[in-house]
Computed example of a mutant assay.
Amino acid sequence: MILSPIDTVAHISKEDFIENYFKPQKPILIKGLARQWKDFDKWNLDYIYQKVGNQEVGLYDNKPADPNKATNEPVTKMRFKDYINLIRSTPSDLRIFFYIITDHLPELLKNFSYPDLGFKYFKRIPTLFFGGSEARVLMHYDIDLGDLLHFQFEGKKRVVLFAPDQAPFLYKVPLSVHTVYNIDYENPDYEKFPALKYAKGYEIFMEHGDALFMPSGYWHFNRYLEAGFSISLRSFPTHPSRLINMLNEVFVIRYTDKIMRKLFKKKWVDHKQRNAFKKSQKALQHYLSTHSSNA
């Protein structure tokens, strides 16, 4: 992988953000943006512990989804306070996925304000994500194709981003929003996945209060370096072509995959994995032949 530093600023005007990042769909890290919030001091695990500690939450780990089960089925459940105590006291790969604030902790909505950066937010689903110090999230892009403003709190996190046009080198699984399961983005094996060596992206290290702008369709891999959590604020696709793509992803591709997975289980998963490898190998051969002829 060819990973470059991302543009990083402490402050940015709405005009600068729109012209140089939102319109060209380029990511940027805004250091400490959340510190502008009036109640920034409430964005910590202690506050969550006090407010919703007795809620039961579903937890996920680093293992690939069981092909015999629904892809969104948690590996276990526990009380929120027990989960927080666990990730604070011991290394853990357990994480909470897509915790919708408006449904489970609406009081937290009073403790932040949507940054005025010039794009409209989809305010129904601001979502929280939590992870222990060994948790990681498979390389994927968000199915709704919204632009994301992603904030990190408490522990540090490493993020790897790739633009949508890098998908041919990432071993994208057909009819899915993720890459093959067995790529290690911390120690990539270029002998096993040679196309990955030519993928061009960004490497970002996030700290408490930082905000990362991830444009629509960007691939992202998240690795919690310490126990922590994040919130994603997203926009709803407004451009006609992006809206059509989003509807296709959500209602056609997603449900086609669910039906095939239910019918054929592991055979279907293995078939998609093989196809992902073949397509990236083909993209690699095309890339090498093109660049060798231009040399």
Score class of each variant (00 low, 15 high):
residue 1 M to I: 12
residue 2 I to G: 08
residue 3 L to G: 07
residue 5 P to K: 11
residue 6 I to C: 08
residue 9 V to A: 06
residue 20 N to W: 08
residue 20 N to G: 06
residue 22 F to V: 08
residue 22 F to E: 09
residue 26 K to V: 05
residue 27 P to H: 04
residue 28 I to C: 03
residue 29 L to T: 03
residue 32 G to A: 07
residue 32 G to W: 04
residue 34 A to W: 03
residue 36 Q to M: 05
residue 38 K to W: 02
residue 39 D to P: 01
residue 45 L to R: 01
residue 50 Q to K: 14
residue 51 K to I: 07
residue 52 V to M: 06
residue 52 V to N: 02
residue 54 N to Y: 10
residue 55 Q to M: 12
residue 61 D to H: 10
residue 61 D to K: 05
residue 63 K to Y: 07
residue 64 P to V: 08
residue 69 K to Y: 06
residue 71 T to V: 14
residue 71 T to G: 03
residue 74 P to Y: 09
residue 75 V to Y: 01
residue 76 T to S: 13
residue 79 R to K: 15
residue 79 R to S: 00
residue 81 K to H: 12
residue 82 D to N: 13
residue 85 N to P: 00
residue 85 N to A: 15
residue 86 L to A: 04
residue 87 I to L: 04
residue 88 R to Q: 15
residue 91 P to T: 11
residue 95 R to D: 02
residue 96 I to W: 00
residue 96 I to Q: 00
residue 98 F to L: 11
residue 104 H to T: 10
residue 105 L to M: 13
residue 106 P to T: 07
residue 107 E to W: 05
residue 108 L to G: 03
residue 110 K to E: 13
residue 110 K to V: 01
residue 110 K to F: 00
residue 116 D to T: 12
residue 118 G to H: 09
residue 119 F to D: 07
residue 121 Y to C: 08
residue 121 Y to S: 07
residue 122 F to H: 13
residue 122 F to D: 14
residue 126 P to M: 11
residue 126 P to V: 11
residue 127 T to E: 02
residue 127 T to F: 01
residue 133 S to I: 03
residue 134 E to M: 12
residue 135 A to L: 04
residue 138 L to K: 12
residue 139 M to E: 02
residue 140 H to F: 06
residue 141 Y to S: 08
residue 145 L to C: 01
residue 145 L to D: 01
residue 148 L to F: 03
residue 150 H to P: 01
residue 151 F to D: 05
residue 157 K to R: 15
residue 176 S to P: 01
residue 177 V to A: 07
residue 177 V to W: 02
residue 179 T to C: 11
residue 180 V to W: 08
residue 185 Y to R: 03
residue 186 E to D: 15
residue 187 N to L: 04
residue 188 P to Q: 10
residue 190 Y to S: 07
residue 192 K to R: 14
residue 196 L to P: 08
residue 198 Y to N: 12
residue 198 Y to Q: 07
residue 199 A to P: 03
residue 204 I to A: 02
residue 209 G to A: 09
residue 212 L to G: 08
residue 213 F to T: 05
residue 215 P to D: 09
residue 215 P to L: 05
residue 216 S to K: 08
residue 217 G to W: 02
residue 217 G to K: 05
residue 219 W to T: 10
residue 221 F to W: 14
residue 223 R to H: 14
residue 226 E to S: 10
residue 237 P to F: 05
residue 239 H to Y: 11
residue 239 H to E: 15
residue 245 N to I: 00
residue 247 L to I: 12
residue 249 E to L: 07
residue 253 I to C: 00
residue 254 R to K: 13
residue 255 Y to V: 06
residue 255 Y to M: 04
residue 269 V to C: 02
residue 270 D to Q: 13
residue 270 D to W: 05
residue 274 R to Q: 15
residue 276 A to G: 15
residue 278 K to L: 14
residue 284 L to V: 06
residue 285 Q to F: 07
residue 287 Y to Q: 02
residue 289 S to T: 12
residue 292 S to T: 14
residue 292 S to W: 10
residue 293 S to E: 13
residue 294 N to S: 13
